[in-house]
């Protein structure tokens, strides 16, 4: 997912031994750390969503800031709004409890 203000940087392809090494390190990363990184990013997403609720909460009917000022923050949150709204408005059922 894209987060506020993220620049998506693409790493250029590497060749030769260095390329092999980087593949290897990616594999190690994938085995050992990917789960951890995902968990961290998920945690970050929750904080991000909480932050959105605290600032542009009036989008969900929770008026906090005067709308005049909320509009100033809006541009920064554009990429997250859709996901956030879906998450906030999603109906919770037993599968949520099972899957956490």
């Amino acid at each position: 997912m894209i987060t506020i203000g993220d620049n998506v940087e693409e790493t250029s392809g590497k060749k030769g031994f260095r390329g092999l090494f980087s593949r290897l390190s990616e594999a190690i990363y994938g085995m050992a750390l990917h789960g951890q990184v995902t968990a961290i990013m998920k945690e970050k997403m929750y904080i991000e969503y909480l932050f959105m609720l605290m600032t542009i909460g009036d989008m969900m009917g929770i008026p906090i800031l005067p709308p005049y000022y909320t509009l100033r923050l809006l541009p920064y949150m554009v990429p997250n709004i859709k996901g956030w709204k879906l998450r906030m408005l999603r109906e919770r059922d037993f599968t949520d409890i099972v899957t956490g």
Partner: peptide, 28 residues
């Protein structure tokens, strides 16, 4: 405080991914 926390998580994630983390000026 909440924003800083979010950044901490991001920083930790990029460290684990061995990516360079650049402190962005937080416009928001």
């Amino acid at each position: 405080e909440a924003r800083r926390q979010a950044y901490e998580y991001e920083k930790a994630a990029s460290r684990l991914k061995r990516e360079k983390y650049t402190e962005r000026e937080d416009q928001l």
